[in-house]
Structures are given as structure tokens and as C-alpha cells.
Design a protein around this nucleic acid. Structure first.
Lengths: 232, 232
DNA sequence: TGGGATTTGTTCGTATGTATT
DNA sequence: GAATACATACGAACAAATCCC
């Protein structure tokens, strides 16, 4: 029998994907027994996988109460996005004008996959788009930056699932192309605001509208439904 | 019986301190039952503590081979310090000219403790000095930045223990005072190079000399001993 | 408020993998 | 290279806490 941490990794990866693809929504309970049954593993192994996810803050473990899919507050979301802005800034500063031909090819392939999935309406599109930023971080050659970015990207996906609008995914492909173009030519003056705005579009818009929705009363929230009723 | 994670925390904290104070040196094996005996806990609990430390990269866990105190390579050390430079930069950018009186007081108290320990030759001096940077990060109000800084500071201490010269601790107190002064007045132009040079002094000098030592041949390394033999 | 069902926290025996002689 | 010693990986079972009527 395989006795290595392979099975832990399998459960970890499986749960991670399920969370990021919003199959498991924030707040969902993750009982050790149930998961163990699904994956054919004992509680010991499941528990380790859950603890790994907790160290990434994708799941929340409270003593004697078990694990749930993390449900970041708006406050945490804002913190995350502001730190992510800063870290992405560090990444492109290290890469600007220094991409090797092989790296450019890799990025183009990534965008290609992203676009194809988008055109065909496949949901992996979101994962590809997020992965683009992870690939950039890895290209800095700094394992630490890559590690942090992986966490930031993962948690961003969770938050966007929570607070984001359904349509937050639009028009990201062209922006990625523009980013690569600037990185290649080393056009920092254009690159910097481009990345900032790109993230602002994807990230902050989502939570700003969420915060806005929160302030809106029931009257406003119901308005569209009322309108639909009128025209019926 | 206490059934919460309290005991895990105790072991985690104990091991962490022992590693950072170099009581446990890099490469030291950390067998589960030995540690369990010391702390009066079973392997399960010890294992969790070790996994926590592994998630901070203070210990290394290899499947079927158990845990050892992490032993970062020079490559990893360089990566760490360069990322730390960047993150510290983010921290002071957020704080410059925005410290509240209470925060200034807190920082002065921190430096005070640091100086006292230094004057009296107590080894906690090092911990206080490291904590100064952690306190700064916490003052940004960003839990994420604080979290990352905690990891970076911890790993820095490990690396300095590995590659640093015995005297790397000198003259840090005055530099901390200067940093606070600039933060208070909001003198960014002076603050930025100050922090950079401060870290460069503490961090990079250590590994540069280490790298240098590595390049030196046996001849150079033995020179001092030869000299001692001559004069005897 | 209380009690039963469910779930987590922990221990420890056994199997398996690694290191050593 | 095999045998031995030792440490880790795993899982079953029990203890304790929480949840839910």
C-alpha cells in the first residue's frame, strides 16, 4: 500500500479545486467522515489535508467545531486586494523588459488556452485567467513571491465567488495580452497603470459593488424584480 | 482534560523559540516521540506542531523521513532577503507620516527594551530587534502583511544563525531610532534609503560574507590557524 | 434544560518505509 | 546485500465536546 503523503495531496488538491470552482461554497461544512468516505481515506489523512488548506486560509478550522470553507469578510477582502496590488506590482517590476523568448511563448500559450476556454464558454476559463498571474510570479524566479502569489490568487478566487458579480470575468484576455506586450518591450510607464487598472477592474469592482449592495435597502434590491413583474 | 489545540500551540511555540534562538540548529532531527517525551505529549500532537512549523518553512518534513530544522540554501537566503526588502518597503510606505501618538509610544518602548537587553548583554536582544520589524508590519493594519512579515522575520533569524557572523547584531538600535524619527516626520526621501541600508547591513552582509567564505580555498581558511601555530 | 446523536480530539497498535551495520 | 533497529504513516477505537431536538 502507498504509505506516502500522496493521498493527502490528492485530497488537498481535490478539495482546493472544489473550493476555487465554487462547487463547495463559503461556509460549507467539511466533516472529516464525509470527506473520508468520498475519497476513500481515513480521518487522519483528511484532517491533514484540511490543515493544509487552513494554512492557506481557504478553510476555517475552529476547535471542536470542525472545518468549513472560509468565508472572508469584506474587511479581509479589501486587505487581500490591496496586498495583492502591491505584490503584483513587485512581480512586474522584476519582469519588465527582462522576459526571455521562452517565457513569452509560455505566456502566450497561457493566454491562448484562456481565450479558447472563454470562447467555448468553458468554466476553466476562470482558472486559466487566475493562473496567468501565478505564472508571472513564478517567472520572477523567486519561490517566495510565487508562493505568496499562489495564496493570494487562491483566496482572490474565493472572494470573487462570494462577492463578485457573475460577469466579472469579461474582457480580461485582451488586458493580459496588453500586459505581456508591455513586459516584452519594457514599457514600464504604460505597464504600471495597466496592471493596476486590470486588478482594479477584476478585484475592487467586485467588492465595491458588494459593499454598495449592502448599503442599499431592500427597496432597491427588489426593484429589478418589481420591474419584471410590471412588464409581465 | 483540555482537548483544544492548546498543547499544540505550546509545543509549536516552544520549538519555534528553540529554533530561532539556535538551541536547535539547522539540520537537527526532530523525532516525534523524543519531542513528545520532552513536552509530555503524544506523537499526534507533536506532529501537528511540526506541520505548523513546516508551513512557516522553519522545519523541513520529508515523507517517511520525519522532520528536521530547516537549513535554507544560500540561494533561498538571497531570495528571502530580496523579498523581505520589498515587503519592508511596502510596510514603511504605508506607515510614513501616518503613525498615531500611541503607535510612536509603542515603538519607542520596543526600542527601549531592545536597548536595555543590548546594554546588559542579554540574548533576548536579538528577538526584540526582530520584533521591531514585526510590530511595524502589524501597525499597517493589514493582517496579511503582518503574517508575511512574521514568516520573513522568523526565517531571517534562522538564516542569520546559519550564515551570519557572530557580530551581526551591532548598532541596530540607533538605526531603529532613526527609522522611527523619519516615519513620524514623514520624511520619505530619507526613510527609504535608511530602511534599505539597515536591512542591507543586517541581512545581505551576512550572506555575502558567507558566499565569500565558500569561495575561499582551504588555504585561506586555514591561514589563521597557521598563524597561531607560528606564534606558539 | 437535558439527553441522545453526531463530530471532533486523542491515543496507541500495527504496518511500512528508511537507515545502519 | 541482508538483517536489524528505528521512525513514520495510517487507521481503529475511545474520550470529550458540540449540536439538535
Amino acid at each position: 500500500m502507498k504509505q506516502r503523503g500522496e493521498r493527502v495531496d490528492a485530497i488537498y488538491a481535490g478539495l482546493r479545486l472544489a473550493i476555487l470552482e465554487q462547487v463547495l461554497q463559503p461556509g460549507t461544512k467539511l466533516p472529516e467522515d464525509t470527506i473520508g468516505e468520498q475519497f476513500g481515506a481515513s480521518r487522519t489523512v483528511v484532517r491533514r489535508a484540511l490543515e493544509l488548506l487552513a494554512s492557506e486560509e481557504l478553510v476555517d478550522i475552529r476547535p471542536n467545531r470542525g472545518a468549513t470553507v472560509a468565508k472572508p469578510s469584506l474587511e479581509e477582502a479589501r486587505d487581500l486586494f490591496s496586498v495583492r496590488q502591491d505584490v503584483e506590482h513587485l512581480v512586474i517590476r522584476r519582469l519588465c523588459g527582462r522576459l526571455t523568448p521562452a517565457q513569452v511563448k509560455r505566456l502566450e500559450a497561457q493566454i491562448e488556452a484562456e481565450e479558447r476556454a472563454h470562447r467555448e464558454g468553458r468554466p476553466e476559463y476562470i482558472r486559466h485567467a487566475a493562473e496567468f498571474h501565478l505564472v508571472l510570479a513564478e517567472m520572477t524566479g523567486s519561490p517566495l513571491l510565487a508562493r505568496y502569489m499562489r495564496q493570494l490568487v487562491g483566496r482572490s478566487a474565493l472572494i470573487l465567488g462570494l462577492y463578485g458579480r457573475p460577469r466579472w470575468t469579461d474582457c480580461s484576455v485582451q488586458e493580459h495580452r496588453d500586459l505581456v506586450a508591455c513586459l516584452v518591450t519594457g514599457d514600464w510607464a504604460r505597464l504600471e497603470p495597466l496592471m493596476h487598472d486590470h486588478l482594479e477592474a477584476v478585484l475592487s469592482r467586485a467588492i465595491d459593488t458588494a459593499a454598495h449592495d449592502k448599503d442599499r435597502g431592500i427597496r432597491d434590491l427588489l426593484a429589478p424584480y418589481a420591474e419584471a413583474a410590471r412588464s409581465a
